[in-house]
Simulated scan of single mutants.
Amino acid sequence: MAATRLISLHHVKTKSVAQCLKRCIDYVRDEKKTEDEKYISTYGCDPKTIVGEFLLSRKIYEDNVRRPHKKDVIAYQIRQSFKPGEITPEKANEIGYDLAMRFTKGRHAFMVATHTDKHHIHNHIVFNSVSIDGKSRFRNFYYSGLALSRISDILCLENNLSVIQSRYEENIRNKNSKRHRFGNRALDQNSLSFLVDIEKKMREGKGRGYENWARKFNLKQRAKVLLFLEEHGISSYEELVKKTDSMEADIDVLNEKIKARNTAMKENKELQKAIIDYSKTRSVYTEYRKCGYSKKFYAEHEDEIERHKAAKKIFDTVSSGKLPKMKELRDEYGELLAVNKTDFQEYVRMRKEKKDFLIARKNLELLLEREKAEEREKAKAKQSRSSRSETSL
Rank of each mutant, 00 (worst) to 15 (best):
A274F: 00
I314E: 01
I314S: 01
R261F: 04
I305W: 03
K295D: 15
I276R: 08
R261W: 07
K257D: 11
R282A: 10
C291I: 09
G292I: 12
N262I: 02
H308I: 04
F315M: 02
H308C: 06
E304N: 11
T263K: 13
F297C: 11
S283H: 08
K312T: 06
E270F: 05
E304V: 05
T263W: 09
T263C: 06
Q272S: 09
K290G: 06
K309P: 03
E287M: 09
K296Y: 15
I258A: 05
S283P: 01
M265V: 03
A274K: 01
I276E: 07
K266E: 14
K266F: 07
Y298W: 13
I258W: 14
K259Q: 15
Y285G: 09
I275A: 01
T317A: 04
N268G: 06
A299W: 04
K309C: 04
K269C: 00
K313A: 13
K296V: 15
I258H: 05
E300H: 15
S279T: 07
C291T: 12
K295Q: 14
K295G: 08
K257W: 06
E287C: 08
A299L: 11
R282L: 10
K273T: 02
D277M: 01
I275K: 01
I258G: 03
Y278W: 12
Q272K: 07
K296H: 13
K313L: 09
R282I: 09
E287N: 11
F297G: 11
